[in-house]
Computed example of a mutant assay.
Amino acid sequence: MTSHSDFWPHCGFHSLARDTRGWLLPTQAYFQWILARPELALVPESCAAEIALHQSLATSPLRSVAPQELVALVDDDARENYAVFLRFRDGLLAAGTLEAYYLQLMRSGAVDVPAVFIDAVVQALLRNLLDDCNDAFEARAAEMLFRPQRITLQEGQMLAGDRATLDMLNETAGLGEVGRLLLQSGALQPTAQVKVLSADNAAQYWQESDRHHFLLDLTHELTQDLSHGLTFKMTRARSGLKALARVLERWVAHLLGVQVQIEPVHQVTDSAWRWHVGLDVESTAILNDLYQDRPVEAERMQRLVSLFTLTFANPAEMRADVAGKPVYLGLATNAEGVVRIKPQNLLLNLPLASAS
């Protein structure tokens, strides 16, 4: 294991403070970081009113903004962006911590801020709960909770790659507009400047974490055919699914205060299967159909990346009717081969004895 440097340095984590519980407190510096994001940054077309508003908020991000200041903005999109920022800021300040804000927002069922803000909060939460993490595989697996992943099969390996990074490399070969033109002219072959995270290069992850160019190997078991028709299955020590399971355990412990153990499995053989949680839209639908004995086409079944069992360390923390039973989790791609984890599913849908 390699001791880590400061990973995800541009996620705003260092502008946050911690309370005695270890939860993250928003600060002026955090809102200044949000204001500097591309979604809110000034552009050449920004009108005088927008420039004045942006500059005053950058100096005093907690100041109240009068309705007429938004009305004065010429551009409709800019007006909406600042309204969203102020709603996000005020919600975060009212909740007190990023954790409390995230839980309240997801439990409300009325998510009124764009995904880009929610993903920023999730990344900060993960950076906080992984602050003592020395395992590059876990840090890379954690990226799956706030960045969509493209899943590819390559020589028997199931690899997860950052969708935005892979799409950019396919379009521009990493060379921007020049690369795009060269690719279109056929003068350049697309070369994915990505590498599979391994024990040999794990130390590089900490320095390069913001580039999102490491592929995570999600192959959990290796099957070796022996003579006489026997097969030997060996669980990989360095499984990306195992790393993801560890991250999800920390996620549940940090936000719900409940200790659980999560393990990747190949199939559900439990005839008394009582509870399941999909980690994304696709696996939720597949597990619901299987649970209801509805037919699932082979093409949809093949989208399942993995199943997991989740067990509570203390069965008394579960609902009485399912106490002691495993909870089954699913992870699947959509029709385009993309996994988009919804980390709130694990917080909202566990069979807890009482609301945490």
Results as ranks from 00 to 15, higher is better:
Lys242Trp: 09
Glu69Lys: 02
Ala36Cys: 06
Val305Trp: 05
Val281Lys: 09
Arg107Val: 08
Val116Phe: 13
Ser108Asp: 00
Ala78Thr: 14
Gly179Thr: 04
Asp131Lys: 08
Phe312Ala: 10
Ala192His: 10
Tyr291Glu: 02
Leu197Ala: 07
Leu183Phe: 12
Ala141Leu: 12
His4Ile: 08
Asn81Val: 02
Glu171Gln: 11
Ala202Val: 06
Arg63Gln: 15
Asp90Phe: 14
Asn288Phe: 08
Gln259Ala: 13
Tyr328Glu: 00
Leu130Pro: 04
Asn128Gly: 03
Ser60Val: 04
Leu215Asp: 11
His254Lys: 02
Ile34Glu: 05
Ser64Thr: 13
Gln68Lys: 11
Val196Lys: 11
Leu57Met: 01
Ala187Tyr: 09
Leu352Pro: 01
Pro61Gln: 06
Leu57Trp: 11
Lys342Tyr: 03
Thr309Ser: 12
Val178Pro: 01
Trp8Glu: 05
Ala136Trp: 05
Ala120Arg: 15
Arg303Cys: 08
Trp33His: 15
Glu171Asp: 10
Arg63Pro: 00
Leu181Gly: 03
Ile151Val: 15
Cys47Asp: 15
Leu331Ile: 02
Leu182Gln: 09
Leu182Ile: 08
Val277Cys: 03
Thr284Pro: 01
Gln104Ala: 15
Ile118Asp: 03
Leu24Gly: 06
Leu348Gln: 04
Ala141Gly: 07
Asn201Ala: 10
Ser46Asn: 00
Trp275Thr: 01
Arg238Ala: 09
Leu226Asn: 10
Pro315Tyr: 07
Pro67Ser: 13
Ser185Asn: 08
Leu350Asp: 00
Ala316Ser: 14
His254Cys: 02
Leu244Thr: 04
Trp23Tyr: 14
